[in-house]
Structures are given as structure tokens and as C-alpha cells.
Write a protein that binds this DNA or RNA. Structure first.
Lengths: 163, 163
DNA sequence: ATAAGATTGTTGCATTTGCAACATGTATTT
DNA sequence: AAATACATGTTGCAAATGCAACAATCTTAT
């Protein structure tokens, strides 16, 4: 084969990380995070974006234990517990002890107060959903989501998330 | 119009943040970061992923001042300076004082030692580039990148990044 | 001309995050 | 039965990050 010639040609033509999809995803994620931070600073003083994402996940997944929440959100158990502490203190969630495979766990559920807050915040997001639907077509959005999922699935098989 | 009936129907059907593209991008970015962290732990002890992204950006943008680098990488000036301190101490970059609009600035450039390291790391990334090209078609990758850029551009107009 | 404001980089501090160790209790193995 | 390994959640500490204040210098406004 042409491996040696290939290596020579590759040496000149570096593939930069900053041109990779991974980097663009990271960059875009930073933009999204900056937007969320500013939005919450202006509009919602009850939660920060991390607590909001956790509350939304709790709302979508009833009766889930902390570690499974951590796995969904890709956070470690320690910070998951701390965010839940904060949400519980503000009475947006409740925790109760339960068992899973005969092991003691803490299951989490959203309170009515939490549901109401989530609904209020969801309405404030409406303009952003609309603006995204204006700049990206439905078909492209479908492709975007599918591609992101493919990337996550591929990475899931390579690295161990050990949460 | 049907605004009131519309509101009623929306109240029941909450749009969850965890279903949004923004959330999926954030999640995927966490997967990518986890992969990078594990990869660097195994394979490269000279740099961490943040330093690597900075070095790659410096390599792609000769003679750039620190604040412009911060703007490209979406980091604040403080951390940009700290990462550059580390890279300079390891002799992968050099800084020299210069002026821009008659103001004193520090311009950054990669050293030959830095170029060599970057090339080595780039080659170790090859398997990942290949695996991504296997799971996502070229057309979908083009759409993915374009959509991400559209999202960044839209956010750029809404929020001030003040770096 | 003096004052106010802008640009660049650094420092210090508070918050967040990541990671390892621990406590507790359960399966599994020998 | 004892030992080992696993699952869940918590605690403590180190590292990373974000943010505001500062120093130095230049531009603009009054």
C-alpha cells in the first residue's frame, strides 16, 4: 500500500482539532450556556440553569433514583446530590427512601410548586424555540438531532462514563 | 384569534428543555469532553484538553493577542492568560509585546516544539475522525456544522459575550 | 486640558466542578 | 461463613471556572 507516502502527505496537512465537529459542538454549547446564564439572570431568580435542567429531568422521569438522574444528566453523583439538596430546600422536589434490588436508594419527584415553576420558565423559552425554528428547517433539525445522537452513541461505546 | 384557547392548550403540553436542541448539544458536548479527557489521560501527558484547544487555536491564528484568542475560544481573559502561562512555561508558545491601535498587547505564537507536539496529537486523533466519518455521512456532517453555526450566529446577536 | 470611558492583561476571591475516599448495605464467591 | 465485589449516596479536598477589581495606556468628550 501507500502507507509511507500517505504519512508523508499527512504530515504536511495537519487536521486541526478546531475544525472538528467535536470542537464546534463544544463551542456551540458554550454559546448556549452563555445564553441560558444571561436569560436566567434576567428572568428567573429561583433557579440557575443547572438546577433547571435537573428539575426538568426530574419532571420527565418520575420516581427516579439519584444515580440514574446523574447518568441522564452526565453529572457525577456528588454534584447531582448537591443540586437536589438545593431543589429540595426550595421545595421544588421531594425525596423519599425506597429500595431497588433490595438496596436503599433515594427516589426523587417534582412537587406541584416545582411543576408550576417549570411551566412558567417553559413559557419564557417560547421566543427562543421560535427563533431557532426560523433559522433551521425542520428537516435539518431532525438531521442535527440524529447526528448528535449518533455521536453520543459512538462515544458511549468507546469511553466508560462510570457515574 | 385563538390566543386564549392556544394558551390553554399549551399549558397542558409543556415543551421540556431536555427535548430542545440546546440541551442535546450540551449533552453531546459533555460526551465529547469526557472522551477527550480520557484520551489525554491515556495518551498525552504534556497537555490537558484545554491547553490543547488553545495551542491548536494559536497554531491556526498566528500573531494573535490574548483577548482575541479568548474571543475565539469563548473563555474569559483571566483563564486565557493562565492557560497561556502554562503553555509558555512548557515552551510550546512564545509571547512578545506589541502594539495594536497604539495599545500595548501580548501577541502569541506557537514554537517548533509546539508544532511537533500538535502534529503528534493530531495523528492520535485519526481513529476518531475515521469513526465519525463512518457513522455520519458527509452530507449530514455538512448540515450538522451549518446548523451549529446558525445557532451560534443567532445567539451572538441576542447575548453579549463581553470578553 | 481635564475628565470620562475604552482596551488589554493580571490578580484575587468565590463558586462550581471533578475525583477519590468513605459509609452502608447487598450479591456473589470461595 | 467469611471475603470479595458491587451499588448508592455523602463528604472533603483539589482543580477549574467565572467574575469583579485593578493597573496601565490610549481615545473621546466636555
Amino acid at each position: 500500500m501507500n502507507t509511507k507516502a500517505n504519512n508523508e502527505s499527512k504530515r504536511k496537512q495537519i487536521r486541526h482539532y478546531t475544525d472538528s465537529p467535536s470542537y464546534e459542538i463544544d463551542l456551540t454549547s458554550k454559546y448556549c450556556k452563555a445564553m441560558l446564564t444571561q436569560l436566567f439572570n434576567r428572568v428567573c431568580h429561583e433557579l440557575n440553569p443547572e438546577e433547571f435542567a435537573m428539575l426538568d429531568t426530574v419532571s420527565c422521569n418520575k420516581n427516579m433514583c439519584q444515580r440514574d438522574l446523574a447518568r441522564l444528566l452526565l453529572k457525577d453523583r456528588a454534584n447531582t446530590g448537591r443540586i437536589l439538596d438545593s431543589l429540595e430546600k426550595k421545595e421544588y422536589i421531594v425525596r423519599h427512601n425506597d429500595t431497588k434490588n433490595n438496596r436503599l436508594i433515594r427516589k426523587v419527584n417534582i412537587t406541584p410548586k416545582g411543576e408550576i415553576l417549570l411551566e412558567q420558565i417553559s413559557q419564557k423559552f417560547e421566543p427562543f424555540r421560535e427563533s431557532i425554528s426560523k433559522i433551521i428547517s425542520d428537516e435539518d433539525l431532525t438531521i442535527l438531532r440524529a447526528s448528535l445522537k449518533k455521536i453520543r452513541d459512538a462515544i458511549k461505546q468507546i469511553v466508560d462514563m462510570q457515574i
